[in-house]
Amino acid sequence: MSTHRFTDLLRLRGPAQPTPITSPDASTLAAQLRDECEAMARYALHHGLPVAPELIAQLSALLSKTAPGIPVAAQQSTRDNAYALAAMHRKLATAIAPATPQAVTLLDAQHHDHRALAWLGPVPLIRLLTVAALGFLIAVIVIGLSPDVSSENIDRGFLQSNGTRLLWNVLFLLFCAGLGASFATLFQAHRYIAASTYDPKYDASYGARLILGLIAGLILVEMLPARLFDQGSMHSFGKPALAMLGGFSATAVHRLLQRLVDTLETLVRGDRAGDADAALQTQRSRAAHERTQWQSELAASLLDLQQSLDTSASGEALRRRLADFTRSMLAADSAAAPPAALQNFQSTEE
């Protein structure tokens, strides 16, 4: 088609009509505002939070006007609706604090989404952790039925046992550590769910905590010397209990290993605490000496100012001396006094 003919067709069609802005980003943002405002309003009403009735009424009317099924021509100004939704969103977020709009919306959507395993938890993370905890519990019971799993065989450890007997006992300890790790992660995740501050971006950290719990439980039981806990209250704990404790708190095992490493470095390099204390005392003595010297120079400057007042000095010279003395007094509050201020003060001519 030639250019002239295409131009003639455009003229016959008349001026181009403005098309509404329906970009994916704009529609997604508007849908997010609607969903979060509606979820926060339901949350506030269910929990009896103090929300203004007119705010709920305005939100209900605005949601009915901006429903996705209503044509654009029948809606009000898109910009005005977005502004009103954003303002209501801020007010509702302040009303439901410390709960977050994201967590409230996610929990509200999961509540209305009826699933077969919904009784295991309100979000997929809780359901996965619950299944993991049940799996570790069943595994501990099943492995414990084996005749090779006993306190004598567990106490032998890696170096005094072998074969299938060692495999069953190590699996039993690993499942005990996993039971403690899954209990800790599930308990912590439930705290965020109860407070409605759950954030899905931290889901991967819970899987890492499960793995760290398994490793920490095995390290605490098999890798560390058995006499390490003889002097504490943990000497009466068996290896399964220690494995569960290690899985429950991997950070405690990390601190224990870090303390052992610090002790080893102290034995190799010597105790550096004495050197640090000596350096600190030297620094304090130097600071005290400098402060005493500074106070003496201030006293001398004050006497010089008093003598200037007794003489027939001009008013301008007295004002300069008084200003220099004031700056010197303000500088005296610092740890190290600037000597240049005193030199300028003492060398001021009349």
Score class of each variant (00 low, 15 high):
residue 9 L to K: 09
residue 10 L to Y: 04
residue 10 L to T: 04
residue 11 R to C: 12
residue 15 P to N: 03
residue 15 P to A: 01
residue 22 T to G: 14
residue 29 L to Q: 15
residue 32 Q to V: 05
residue 32 Q to C: 06
residue 38 E to G: 11
residue 38 E to N: 15
residue 40 M to I: 11
residue 41 A to T: 02
residue 41 A to K: 00
residue 45 L to Q: 08
residue 47 H to M: 05
residue 49 L to K: 10
residue 51 V to G: 09
residue 51 V to A: 10
residue 52 A to I: 02
residue 54 E to L: 06
residue 56 I to G: 00
residue 56 I to Q: 00
residue 58 Q to G: 15
residue 58 Q to W: 07
residue 59 L to M: 05
residue 65 K to A: 12
residue 66 T to H: 07
residue 68 P to K: 02
residue 69 G to K: 06
residue 70 I to F: 06
residue 73 A to K: 13
residue 75 Q to L: 04
residue 78 T to V: 12
residue 79 R to K: 07
residue 80 D to W: 03
residue 80 D to C: 03
residue 85 L to F: 04
residue 85 L to E: 03
residue 87 A to K: 10
residue 92 L to I: 12
residue 96 I to T: 04
residue 98 P to W: 01
residue 100 T to K: 13
residue 103 A to R: 03
residue 104 V to S: 09
residue 107 L to S: 10
residue 109 A to D: 04
residue 109 A to S: 01
residue 111 H to P: 01
residue 114 H to R: 04
residue 115 R to Y: 01
residue 117 L to R: 07
residue 117 L to H: 05
residue 123 V to I: 09
residue 126 I to A: 11
residue 128 L to A: 09
residue 130 T to I: 03
residue 131 V to P: 04
residue 137 L to T: 09
residue 138 I to T: 14
residue 139 A to Q: 08
residue 148 D to Y: 05
residue 150 S to P: 01
residue 152 E to A: 10
residue 154 I to L: 15
residue 156 R to Y: 06
residue 157 G to Y: 07
residue 160 Q to G: 14
residue 165 R to T: 15
residue 167 L to S: 08
residue 173 L to M: 14
residue 173 L to T: 07
residue 175 F to D: 00
residue 178 G to V: 03
residue 183 F to I: 12
residue 183 F to H: 03
residue 184 A to N: 08
residue 191 R to F: 11
residue 196 S to K: 13
residue 197 T to K: 09
residue 197 T to R: 14
residue 200 P to E: 02
residue 201 K to P: 03
residue 204 A to M: 06
residue 205 S to H: 12
residue 210 L to F: 01
residue 211 I to P: 00
residue 211 I to A: 03
residue 212 L to Q: 05
residue 214 L to S: 01
residue 214 L to F: 00
residue 217 G to W: 00
residue 219 I to R: 08
residue 227 R to W: 12
residue 230 D to H: 13
residue 233 S to W: 10
residue 233 S to T: 13
residue 234 M to A: 13
residue 234 M to Q: 03
residue 235 H to S: 12
residue 239 K to P: 02
residue 240 P to G: 02
residue 251 T to G: 12
residue 260 L to C: 11
residue 263 T to D: 14
residue 265 E to Y: 09
residue 265 E to V: 10
residue 269 R to G: 14
residue 272 R to I: 05
residue 273 A to N: 10
residue 274 G to W: 02
residue 275 D to V: 06
residue 279 A to S: 11
residue 286 R to P: 02
residue 292 T to F: 12
residue 300 A to V: 12
residue 303 L to D: 15
residue 305 L to Y: 13
residue 307 Q to F: 14
residue 308 S to C: 14
residue 311 T to H: 10
residue 312 S to R: 03
residue 314 S to V: 12
residue 314 S to Y: 05
residue 320 R to I: 05
residue 330 L to W: 08
residue 334 S to W: 05
residue 337 A to C: 09
residue 337 A to L: 10
residue 339 P to S: 09
residue 340 A to N: 05
residue 342 L to K: 15
residue 347 S to G: 13
